[in-house]
Amino acid sequence: KFNKELSVAGREIVTLPNLNDPQKKAFIFSLWDDPSQSANLLAEAKKLNDAQAPK
């Protein structure tokens, strides 16, 4: 279960257009550290992506 959630969340995070590479890497490392938090980490990444969207 975690492997699928981890890969789905990881793929989504790397495609978020408004995150820079260090931010993406930080989220990916957090996913590896605790795969059970993949849904929460993906939600946080999406929030940050939205907040950094060009206005």
Rank of each mutant, 00 (worst) to 15 (best):
A43V: 08
T15N: 15
A53K: 07
Q37Y: 04
Q23S: 03
F2I: 11
S38T: 12
D34L: 03
L19Q: 00
L19T: 00
E5D: 11
A39L: 09
L48D: 02
E44G: 05
K24Y: 03
A45Y: 01
F27I: 03
N3W: 14
Q23D: 04
K25S: 11
L16S: 02
K24R: 07
L6G: 04
K25R: 11
W32S: 05
P35Y: 04
K55W: 08
K24Q: 01
I28K: 03
D33P: 00
K46C: 02
P35K: 03
V8A: 13
T15V: 08
L6S: 06
K1F: 13
D33G: 08
A51G: 05
A53T: 09
K25F: 14
E5K: 09
S30D: 05
D33F: 13
E12M: 08
K4D: 11
A26V: 06
A53Q: 07
N49H: 01
A51N: 06
E44H: 05
P35H: 01
L19E: 00
S7K: 07
D50F: 07
L48W: 04
Q37P: 02
A43D: 07
A51P: 02
K25T: 10
L6D: 04
S38C: 09
K46E: 04
P22L: 15
K1R: 12
K55M: 13
A51S: 08
A39Y: 06
A39C: 09
L6M: 10
F29I: 12
D34F: 05
L31N: 00
V14A: 08
F2D: 08
E12W: 11
E5Q: 09
R11S: 08
I28R: 00
A53G: 09
P17F: 03
L48R: 04
L41V: 13
L41T: 07
E5A: 10
S7M: 14
L6W: 09
A9G: 03
N20A: 08
K1M: 13
K47E: 08
D34A: 05
F29A: 11
P54F: 07
E12K: 07
K1N: 14
L41H: 02
S7L: 14
N49I: 01
S7H: 13
L41R: 02
N40E: 13
K24D: 00
D33Q: 14
Q52C: 06
S36N: 07
P17T: 08
P17R: 04
E12D: 06
Q52I: 04
V8I: 13
L48E: 03
N3R: 10
S36L: 06
I28D: 01
P54D: 09
A9T: 10
